[in-house]
């Protein structure tokens, strides 16, 4: 559906996007993740034909950005960050205007605006000026704007930024509803949001894609090891070390020393493909140690994100 090759963009000397390659399949929801200033918005702006790439190619279906930008614009619905719309227009007038530019037929126009008002829950504000709407409603008007001609591809730049928790849930529900039929690319720096709404995630850092795949596969590929923490009483470290070492799959056993703790805290690093919790428990049961705590930590997306984007 969308094919991006070696996409690069400079602002004067500053390289905002540095050779991105990306393929998006039909019906996929792709989340672009990254810290502020990573190049997410620039990438999306180039995808929608607003910015010219310095180098590289973007193909949407059979069209290429550059010669067929207009054709691509007809097929993409775009919601820019914080939905910058005309403040002095009434919501209905604005949607009407978008429908006109999107070349909706007169018969279809009214029914489409009605549908969108239902979908984005805009009924109560249709007669209000956009400037006086709350942020959440503005965002929804922006969403209706993007959906006007029922585009095959929807590009959303931080659709939930600045909204309150209820509004975030509402917008997410709308996105998921739409996402059943459409290809969606959305950018966000809220990780839980990406995990909740996206099929696939691409993490961008300093203009480059540093991870790309489903949440699961990113976790697996980045998570080289998992960690098990146990807290024991009535035991000493050397004895524990001796007994645990024989279990297969353990990389490293360390004692965590807390000055104010009378218990033995142990951190065990384990290969990510091995589940040795049962074996450890068996060992503990056979000894006369008292088990106070036993927990396993797999790497969350947050860990991976921090690891990938905190370098330099």
């Amino acid at each position: 559906m969308i094919h991006v090759e070696n996409l690069t963009r400079y602002y004067d000397d500053f390289c905002a996007v540095d050779g991105i390659n990306l393929d998006v399949q039909k019906g996929e929801i792709l989340g672009l993740l990254g810290p502020n200033g990573a190049g997410k918005t620039t990438t999306l702006r180039m995808l929608t034909g607003y910015l010219q790439p310095t180098a590289g190619q973007i193909q949407v279906k059979d069209f290429t950005i550059g010669p067929d930008t207009l054709e691509i614009k007809k097929r993409i619905g775009y919601l820019p960050e914080s939905a910058p719309l005309y403040h002095d227009m009434i919501v209905y007038d604005y949607l009407n205007y978008v429908a006109d530019i999107r070349e909706l037929k007169n018969e279809r126009k009214l029914s489409r605006i009605y549908e969108l008002a239902q979908l984005c829950a805009l009924n109560s504000v249709m007669h209000k000026t956009i400037g006086e709407l709350s942020k959440g409603f503005k965002q929804r008007v922006g969403l209706a704007h993007a959906l006007m001609n029922d585009p095959e591809i929807l590009v959303l730049d931080e659709p939930t930024s600045g909204l309150d928790p209820n509004q975030i849930v509402e917008i997410r529900e709308i996105i998921r509803k739409i996402g059943r039929e459409k290809t969606i690319i959305l950018s966000t720096h809220i990780l839980s949001e990406a995990e909740a709404t996206c099929d696939r995630i691409a993490i961008i850092h300093q203009g480059k894609i540093v991870a790309d795949g489903s949440t699961q596969s990113i976790k697996q590929s980045a998570g080289r090891e998992r960690t098990i923490y146990i807290t024991l009483d009535n035991a000493d470290f050397d004895a524990v070390l001796q007994k645990l070492e024989v279990i297969e799959g353990i990389i490293r056993i360390e004692e965590l020393v807390h000055p104010d703790s009378n218990f033995l805290d142990i951190k065990i690093s384990v290969q990510s493909d091995a589940d040795i919790r049962k074996d450890i428990y068996q060992v503990i049961r056979q000894a006369d140690w008292l088990l106070l705590e036993f927990r396993q930590e797999t790497q969350t997306l947050e860990h991976i994100f921090r690891e990938l984007t905190l370098e330099n």
Binding site: R45, T48, G49, Y50, L70, K73, K74, I76, Y78, P80, S82, A83, P84, L85, Y86, H87, V98, I101, R102, E103, G142, H145
Partner: peptide, 14 residues
């Protein structure tokens, strides 16, 4: 200054 330029130019217009 409002930013609506971006919304306008990503509509199918030249």
């Amino acid at each position: 200054s409002v930013g609506s330029y971006e919304t306008l130019l990503t509509l199918p217009v030249t």
